[in-house]
Structure formats: structure tokens, C-alpha cells
Design a protein around this nucleic acid. Structure first.
Lengths: 189, 189
DNA sequence: AAGCACATGTAAGAGGTTACATGATTTG
DNA sequence: CAAATCATGTAACCTCTTACATGTGCTT
């Protein structure tokens, strides 16, 4: 429901500083939830005040000191109660779709460059996701002999990543459809 | 970039009242951009003040009067200039993905009901989109003999709808993947 | 008589972005 | 010596959601 819960999950997976959280929100967890460092610092303050997280000053040499946050009992309880209440299925918010419909009242051809830019960005994202999957889940390094029990956290992270991969593939196919449509409309008119 | 542009596109496709816009944002254009009536009224006020839209009082019998908005020259120019500037490729914001990763720190089985709820909602949305496609684009009624030139607006609306359909299909397949994963983790542990 | 669809708004507060601000250390 | 990375924050502003508020006319 809110960024708090994403932060709690990230800190449960691995305690860290606001800065580190901000970097994770650019990767990993940020694949399906973004947040700026300003927002993270503000929310961490509030969570600390509410007793959801604990802070520990970590002096570092060669680097500025940092505050390492970890999840407190109250935070775990808050996460748990959120997990048990329903959330609304998302609706998309897709600027590009608005632009495409808007192009009917302008020159459709001007959108081609823009769509190609998006195509490139999604291609890069897909490559990043696939590299992450290879590194963490399907690669030789990751596929050590199944000694222990199946790791639920790992499985769940993997299925979320598979969702990201499926989304990017679907988006690329759709952008190709959009480009074909724009080209069809472009020349003859 | 902003709701203003979605409103401009919608009003160019068909002038209408704030109330009507709010209803369109629950369907059609709302498939990829949501907005509440409160927000729409506020933004329409601003757009009127800025000269982006014109208003016309329409008295009605048997119903409250309404204000019909239509796009003014300034609004058309604003839309055009937005169309020509790049927008950032979207990042998803997917609560459910946060919940799935959070389930590692709770009982994964509790999520099954929630995921099934989402599955149902997306199934319904897909059915609605497909019905809309049949009605407006691929059905017998819609496929009248190609007398005129290809209608760019229609083509563009259709490609956007195809995007929504692809998104819902992809999401349904992923939710099945998620359910299978949760079931695998559930029993034996 | 109750409830729904139509129709338009205000107000408070939460959430989020952008700009500004500082300062250390490492790398090129 | 400049730029990048690490590290933390404040302030102003815009956007969006939630709750409240009002009133008509048609349908059951």
C-alpha cells in the first residue's frame, strides 16, 4: 500500500542505510516500486519515530558514517498486518498510451522516435533483469547442489523477477505493434 | 506527463462534462490512467482559467444542468508541445510484488487468497477489454466495408487497447506462476 | 420511501517531486 | 584538480486521495 512496506521488506531481506535503500530502489525492489532518497530519509525518520525500525550508528573509515536501519518488532507486526489485508489490483498509468491516442490530433509520425526511445529503454531493462536472473537464480553459481530445504525467500524473489521479465517482453512486443501501426499510418496521408 | 494531457485527449475525442470525463476515466482512457471526479473538477477549473478549454452551459431537462468542456486553441497547442517532448519510460508500481517478497517473512500460504482475488479482477478486466475490442474494432458492426481512408484515431485507439489486452494476458500468466510457486512452498514445510 | 444515476463541488491531509545544501574520499 | 561515489538531510511545491457536502429526478 505504501512505501513503508517496501522498505520493511527490503530491510528484512538485508538491514542497511537510507542511502543503500535508495540504491536498492533503483534496482531489485525498485523494479516494481520507485522512491527517491529524499522520500526514503523522510519515511525512515517517521518509521524510527513510530518504533518500526531500529537505528545503529556505524562508523566507517574512508567513508562518511552511516546509520544502519533494521526492522523492529513493531515494524514486523505492521508488515504482517498489511500482508493480511487486501490491496486493490493496480491500474496502469501509462503516459505513452495517452500520447499515442493524442497523436491522432497531431502528426502520428512524430511519435516514432519517442516510441523507439522507449523500446530501447525496455530492451536494456530486460537485459538487466535476465542478467540478474542468470546471476542469482539460473546460473551455475546459483544452482549449487540442492543440499538444504527450498529457500522460500529465494523462490519468491525469483517469481517476482519473472514477472518483471514477462512485463518487459510483453511491452517490447507491444511497442513493435505500436511502431508498425504508426508506420502504416505515416507515409500515405 | 500529467492528467491535463489525458483530459485534453479525451475532450478532443469527444467534448463533455466533468462528470462524463470521470466516467471515461473509469473505462476507456482510464485503462491506463485513473482520475477521480474531485481531481478532474479541480484540474478543469485550472485549465479553464489558463484558457486551455472552453466551457458551455448546457441546460438539461430531467437532469441537472451540465458544463460542457471542449479544447481551445491554447489547449491544443499545449498538447502538441507535450507530444513533441520526451516522457520517461514508466516504472511499474506493483503492491502485489512487494507483498510476495514480504511473504517470505510471514506465511506464504496466506497470500494465495489474495493472489486469486487479483487473478479474478484481471480476468474480468480482460473480458471487458475483449468485449470492447469486438464491439469497436473487430466485430461485424465495426468492420463496415472500407469506404473511407484509414481512420488514424481509430487505429491508434485500437493499438492502445491491444496493449491493455496484452498486459492483462501477461499478468494472468504471471499470477498463475505466482500461485504455482506459493503452492510449491506451502504444503511441505 | 429508498436507492441509484446524474451533476458539481470544498477541505484536509498524505504522498511524491524538484531544488537546494553540505561534506568526505576515491578515481581518473 | 575535477568528477564520481558515499552519505544525509531541508524546504517548497505539486499531486492525489479521502471524506464531506448538496441537490434533482427516475426507478423499484
Amino acid at each position: 500500500m505504501a512505501i513503508e512496506h517496501a522498505i520493511l521488506v527490503s530491510l528484512l531481506e538485508q538491514p542497511g542505510s537510507g542511502y543503500e535503500l535508495a540504491r536498492r530502489f533503483e534496482r531489485s525492489i525498485g523494479y516494481f516500486w520507485t522512491a527517491s532518497h529524499q522520500q526514503i530519509y523522510r519515511v525512515l525518520k517517521r518509521m524510527e519515530h513510530d518504533g518500526w525500525v531500529d537505528v545503529r550508528d556505524v562508523p566507517q573509515h574512508g567513508r562518511p558514517d552511516k546509520k544502519e536501519y533494521s526492522v523492529a518488532d513493531l515494524g514486523r507486526a505492521a508488515l504482517s498486518s498489511w500482508l493480511h489485508e487486501p490491496v486493490e489490483p493496480e491500474s496502469l498509468r501509462h503516459d505513452l498510451a495517452v500520447k499515442i491516442r493524442g497523436a491522432a490530433f497531431d502528426d502520428p509520425a512524430t511519435l516514432i522516435g519517442e516510441v523507439e526511445r522507449h523500446r530501447k529503454a525496455h530492451t536494456e531493462r530486460l537485459a538487466r533483469y535476465l542478467a540478474g536472473e542468470e546471476r542469482d537464480f539460473t546460473g551455475a553459481e546459483a544452482r549449487r547442489p540442492a543440499d538444504g530445504p527450498p529457500d522460500a525467500g529465494r523462490e519468491l524473489q525469483h517469481v517476482v523477477l519473472r514477472g518483471g521479465i514477462a512485463y518487459e517482453r510483453m511491452t517490447l512486443a507491444w511497442l513493435d505493434d505500436v511502431l508498425a501501426t504508426l508506420h502504416r499510418l505515416g507515409p500515405e496521408r
